[in-house]
Design a protein around this nucleic acid. Structure first.
Lengths: 197, 197, 197, 197
DNA sequence: TATGAATGAGCGTTCATTCAT
DNA sequence: AATGAATGAACGCTCATTCAT
């Protein structure tokens, strides 16, 4: 009789171990042996759950981003329109000590995206989802009169997302220049310009 | 007398080889053997010019950015104020097929910055330089009446630079979403908001 | 269940391969590749059993000396007092064709001892053990009246051990001058001076 | 017109540089580049004075030992018989802080001797010279009545030299056990046994 | 003769992957 | 399914030696 194990739970364990390692030491820190040790599971078993290192990385990224998407959805259920967008960007797209790890994983992901088509595909999917979410929030804001009618919602969704990508990046690599408070100020200032005066 | 060679020219040769390789295959592609082969020189000689791989990478980054700084200086000599800033950002901070390689190098650099203090130091230096340059242009613009008096120049320099960092990043990793024309539009739209109406 | 192997047996295999190589070509001959080949195992597996070359060398030395200590213990069980000491020194601290290899390993060890603290520590431990063993034998000899009462046992233990170190060294590097028979004569002559006339 | 240089003086400079390096870091520390740097001469020139590294090492050893032989000769001119021998062994064959370097070079030499015939030849020559010198001193001592008539001079020359080799070795690798004072005591005690009571 | 650049084989070590149990 | 031993290619780096000037 085979041992009964939760296949997916094991995969998640490995994925989270990989993420911790990336956050700490970058991709170089992610050796298969280190992942197994971090996960507290045996080395050999890693290859039962993932056929290769790349597959493990893909899974780790997917897991990491799905957590973030979940949190984003919470905001959009609790708030709406510009308010929800501000929460989304200021609470989650921001770097501070506790979110630094996720951002490090994200930067690592971007690096892979620029190099490997398989990662690029996944990235495009993710971005499209986020842009759609932002666009919806902006449409809500327009309908409720928070922002001007002549604001081009597609354009601004792209702009605001791109902007917050820059803020996240800079907050990660030069935190002295862009502490959390300054990141929020930059975002708020931008959103204010969209608001009906 | 020893064989006469231009020490710095050899270093540049290696640095450019390293940059090509980074652009093509990322850091994994940059093995010392590959760099030597790409530069058309022998493996051993690489270590006459650089004591370690990190030193080579640092030099390659410095070389790459100094080229960009040179071009930036040209714009600031030819134009001034908001005009110069727009040229700077739209002509140089933009991704297109010909500048993709430099941006890939930059993204790789950022990845190292997030992990290694020595790279972070160099990054801070570079950013401080660029921010100073942008601030100066904004001050010029304010004095010549191109932008409102109540614009906070320090804040906007940071904002505009951070924004263009996001644009560059997104243009690199998702070019279908952000082709060159769209990148320019995003920047122009932002600068327009600063302009005296 | 993993492949079942005797971890310690594999370590011994590698250690003995290292000793053969040292005896044949000195430290320069001990490359990790050569050790693996000599042991008849693959290169990579060497690093499962030893984390570094130094660790391998330390283990090889320890293995080599423990064999000698074992033989020494046999003498001290079979004989006692001056008789045991004479057997110990004349049968084992002597160089001949069959023990040349162990002595070559020992000389190589001494060379490392003079340079690396970690080897020096191990050396001190070994010497202290041997000195203690010799001192005990001399005390036995004194109690049984084989040597004079006024012999300083501590001093003579040191003297006799130091002397035999010199004999071993010279026998190794200049065998024509100090063949096995002459080595024994030197030792016997020294021990005779301690004997009650 | 060729530059006038003292060929031998340059060779000595390199040889002394090599010896310093051996004393500090053993053979591994002796790279051709390090020797040139230590000698304050150019890398390339090293190969004008020595055709290979081995030749350099041989020369360095020869130089080092000839210095010691010179000092030995001084003692034999100033003193004679047992007195001279005691000075020879206690002043020069002894390890203390200032002579540690020469002994480290000597141990390194022994290591090479055990491995390479060319070094072994040189070693035999040196030892034969020293043994002859000691034998002469013992004969003098016998003629002047310092030591018994029935002492076998050949045998004791060998014994005393072998003993002092052991003392030097142990003093180098385990100085805590055999400080300079103890080394002298061991030698004196041995010589006393030869003395006419 | 003097200089230091050029070369490539070789080093210790790491690592993803395979495989026997 | 689970384990960890086995494998060998690849890495950054060192180095004696050769060679062009």
């Amino acid at each position: 009789m085979p041992k009964i194990v939760d296949h997916d739970a094991q995969r998640v364990k490995f994925a989270e171990a990989a993420m911790s390692l990336i956050a700490r030491n970058g991709l170089e820190g992610v050796t298969m042996r280190a992942v197994a040790a971090e996960a507290g599971l045996s080395y050999g078993s890693l290859f039962h759950y993932f056929t290769s290192k790349d597959e493990l990385l893909m899974h780790a990224i997917r897991h990491s981003t799905s957590l973030q998407t979940q949190r984003a959805n919470e905001y959009t259920h609790r708030y709406s329109g510009l308010k929800a967008l501000e929460h989304l960007l200021c609470d989650d797209a921001i770097i501070n000590d506790s979110s630094r790890d996720s951002w490090m994983v994200w930067l690592t992901f971007l690096y892979k995206v620029a190099l490997q088509p398989s990662f690029a595909e996944m990235h495009a999917e993710l971005i499209d989802g986020w842009l759609g979410r932002i666009r919806t929030l902006l449409e809500d804001a327009q309908q409720s009169g928070d922002i001007e009618d002549d604001v081009n919602v597609d354009f601004e969704a792209l702009a605001v997302w791109t902007y917050s990508a820059g803020i996240g990046q800079m907050g990660l690599v030069y935190p002295a220049l862009l502490p959390a408070a300054m990141q929020k100020e930059l975002i708020s200032a931008y959103l204010d310009k969209l608001r009906v005066q």
